[in-house]
């Protein structure tokens, strides 16, 4: 699963060991992972049970980040780490497809099920450290389902990429697929790059804009009427309704299980709470 990229961060090229930080609040997982990484020759930083415990000055090649953390958590945690210029491998035992895809949208370079045996983490970290991606079977399923359910109007992934995801979702490893399909490592990396880019755009498209988020909070969480919200935001009442409708459309697109008849204010309330705005 290692895909050395010429422009990678160089962990693999300079010969020094890959350094890994683990942000995870469960000591058992941390210990077993750290032991496995150390056994694979990685240098493991002091474990951080919360994102805030991670030394801001530390510059590990890869951060393995749990998606359910006390304090800053989930996609927000991934975004924070990405903001520090770090490569993130997300992990979780219980994250929903939405949470995982949000983490990918926040520029996580891969996702590994926490229930997966710890030896799966080693190739994943190696791939991410080399600047590439790790697509576990589960992540491949999420990405494939996302692409089938919410197609993009432009720059959508092509059939080769979709079939690559299919193969990964069927439990094949990237190496096996490359060999089977006569795909070079750089070509595979290019495909993954496009897949991740599409996933991010897909996700962004179905996220509330800042103004929409504001309306969602005012009406969904604080229970204001359209008129009160309009006054609060200095806009016309009809614009508030527009924002709310768009938010509802996006909510329905990213929540296929939701009832299509859901009222905009209810959708706003549920989504705002889910996204932690309230």
């Amino acid at each position: 699963m290692t895909l050395p990229r010429p422009s990678g961060r160089g962990a693999g090229t300079t010969g020094r060991p890959v350094s890994v930080a683990i942000v995870e609040d469960h000591p058992i997982t941390t210990e077993s992972l750290a032991a496995r990484f150390a056994g694979a020759g990685f240098s493991v930083l002091a474990p951080a049970p919360r994102l805030e415990d991670l030394d801001p000055a530390a510059a590990p090649d890869v951060v393995v980040c749990d998606l359910h953390l006390p304090g800053l958590s989930g996609a927000a945690a991934v975004a924070e780490l990405h903001g520090r210029g770090l490569l993130v491998l997300a992990t979780s035992g219980v994250a929903t497809p939405d949470e995982v895809l949000d983490a990918i949208a926040a520029r996580a370079h891969g996702f590994v099920d926490k229930a997966a045996p710890s030896h799966q983490f080693v190739p994943a970290v190696t791939a991410v450290a080399a600047g590439s991606y790790h697509v576990s079977t589960r992540l491949a399923g999420f990405l494939l389902e996302d692409s089938l359910r919410r197609p993009l109007s432009r720059n959508e992934i092509d059939n080769t990429e979709r079939n690559l995801l299919r193969g990964l979702a069927q439990g094949d490893l990237l190496d096996e697929l490359c060999a089977e399909r006569d795909l070079s490592a750089p070509a595979a990396h290019h495909h993954l790059d496009r897949i991740f880019d599409a996933a991010r755009r897909r996700r962004r498209l179905h996220r509330p804009s800042p103004r929409e988020a504001e309306v969602m909070v005012l009406i969904g969480c604080r229970g204001l009427t359209y008129r009160e919200a309009a006054r609060e935001m200095n806009i016309r009442e009809s614009v508030v309704a527009d924002y709310l409708r768009t938010a509802r459309t996006k909510y329905l697109a990213s929540h296929p299980d939701a009832a299509p008849s859901i009222p905009p204010s209810t959708a706003a309330a549920l989504w705002a709470r889910e996204l932690g705005f309230g």
């Binding site: 296929p256 299980d257 939701a258 009832a259 299509p260 859901i262 009222p263 209810t266 549920l270």
Partner: peptide, 14 residues
Amino acid sequence: GTGAGVPVSLPVQV
């Protein structure tokens, strides 16, 4: 499930 008993109408898809 779809019709009654829940405070907000929750996402239920048939």
